[in-house]
Simulated scan of single mutants.
Amino acid sequence: MSTSMPLRTTLIGAVLAATALVPLQGTALAAQDDAARSAVVPAASVAGIEDATARTLATSLADPAWNRQVRSAALAADSVDLRALTSRSTTARGKSLAASIATADRRVATAKGLGGDTGSLLRVGLAHPSMEARLTGGETPLVAAAPSDDTATFTAYDSAGTARELAVDTIPEQPVYLVDIDGAKAVTAGLEVLREALAAKGLEVPAPAAEVNTLASTAVAGIDTTLINSVRISDVQEPWIKGDAEIFTLVTGFGQDGKARVDTVEMPYLNEGGTTYYPNQVLVNWSNYKYNMADAVMMEDDGDTNYQALAKSIAAILLTITDQGVYIPLVDALMDAIPTSWWTDDPDYVDSWYTLAKTSSGTRNGAAANGWMNVSPYYVSGL
């Protein structure tokens, strides 16, 4: 991923080229590769679970009936719920995978610090539309986990379980199924975990600012807010294998009680760099804040994001900051709270905006020069 911008987008910076497959030679070499890969990607991590799932799925495709069922599902949608696909399978091989996929889903939820009721997260789909013709023609695909490290190659498996290395900057002609997680679902569940965990620490976190229009229907008085009229993240040429970004923003400031607080804002529409979006989304609900200033830190779920760890780190930092009777920017404190492990695969950090005021209007460039937002004051009147 580019060091200037940590977006997982579908921007294609590569030209279609010949297959770039490098089979691993020999059992000993394959074993060494597995050991090296395990050392780099812990089995308990989301990436490790995805990799194991990809290998299991790849070997299961040796069953012709199950292979055809997966192919039909992959051609019918961009990606499909892997647990649902296995649980409703009419083939013996598909049914036999259901229990292990359900277990993998629970392990993913645990690795991301999500609740046990999150449900299915693992999905599978064709890695690139250019592969549809060969898949339709009956060619058995490779299966790979969505890469999360900034490397030149990633691992895919064939139906014999043999590992092959694919280049991230070249789209192979052979079809590839990509095992990934439902990023939008993970972010929604993760931000709920974040809100609850911070609230438990006394960092009051109400409903997301994006829901303020709903809240206004029961409000006696109106609410002053800041509206995002448009937003754009820098155009970064990502490898073809990267998926959509899963973006959210943390708005920070001092609450009415004088304590540092964090409000979460989901941004499910903001999934590609180089594109201007017009969400008309509420970013700041000023009734939550003591001062006429707030900060915003835009972040991305890169797959291995653990929301419990994030909440714990944020709380540990913000609880040490006290109200001095004057507004203090909290962006740097929030940045310091990001776990060190997040500064890999380029960080989950996207950009930040200091000192947004209730009266802020017009285009505001991010401090990291990775994007901009056009904002304006917006008064939500009560009914």
Rank of each mutant, 00 (worst) to 15 (best):
259 K>M: 12
308 Q>W: 10
252 T>A: 13
364 R>L: 10
351 D>I: 15
266 E>M: 10
347 P>V: 10
259 K>H: 13
330 L>W: 00
276 T>D: 05
248 F>K: 02
298 M>R: 04
271 N>E: 06
275 T>Q: 10
292 N>M: 00
285 N>G: 09
306 N>Y: 07
353 W>H: 10
340 T>F: 00
278 Y>H: 06
331 V>M: 09
277 Y>C: 13
246 E>V: 15
283 L>R: 05
254 F>N: 01
290 K>D: 06
362 G>P: 07
341 S>Y: 12
343 W>M: 12
256 Q>R: 03
318 L>P: 03
252 T>M: 14
307 Y>T: 14
314 I>L: 15
265 V>P: 02
332 D>H: 11
268 P>V: 08
360 S>Y: 05
296 A>C: 09
268 P>Q: 03
315 A>Q: 06
248 F>N: 01
269 Y>D: 05
253 G>W: 12
248 F>R: 03
272 E>G: 03
310 L>G: 00
332 D>P: 10
358 K>D: 05
366 G>M: 06
266 E>P: 13
320 T>I: 05
334 L>C: 12
283 L>V: 05
318 L>W: 14
340 T>I: 10
327 Y>E: 07
279 P>K: 14
315 A>K: 04
332 D>C: 11
270 L>H: 10
258 G>D: 07
318 L>A: 09
319 L>S: 05
301 D>N: 11
298 M>L: 11
307 Y>N: 04
317 I>R: 11
300 E>I: 15
349 Y>M: 04
298 M>N: 03
313 S>D: 07
293 M>F: 11
365 N>W: 05
333 A>E: 15
302 D>G: 09
302 D>Q: 12
325 G>M: 06
254 F>P: 11
289 Y>P: 13
331 V>H: 09
297 V>M: 02
257 D>N: 11
280 N>W: 11
273 G>I: 11
256 Q>S: 04
262 V>Q: 01
275 T>S: 12
315 A>N: 06
276 T>A: 14
353 W>M: 03
339 P>T: 12
362 G>C: 08
300 E>R: 04
304 D>T: 02
349 Y>N: 03
351 D>P: 13
262 V>T: 08
337 A>H: 05
342 W>S: 01
352 S>H: 06
283 L>E: 04
324 Q>N: 11
267 M>Q: 00
302 D>W: 01
283 L>C: 00
304 D>V: 00
280 N>P: 07
293 M>A: 03
363 T>Q: 14
356 L>W: 08
264 T>C: 06
363 T>R: 14
345 D>F: 05
279 P>F: 13
340 T>N: 08
307 Y>S: 04
339 P>N: 10
361 S>G: 01
316 A>F: 04
342 W>M: 06
333 A>P: 08
325 G>L: 07
281 Q>F: 07
257 D>T: 04
304 D>Y: 12
326 V>S: 01
313 S>Q: 05
256 Q>D: 04
317 I>D: 13
360 S>G: 02
330 L>P: 02
266 E>L: 09
300 E>V: 14
366 G>E: 12
315 A>Y: 00
332 D>A: 09
314 I>W: 15
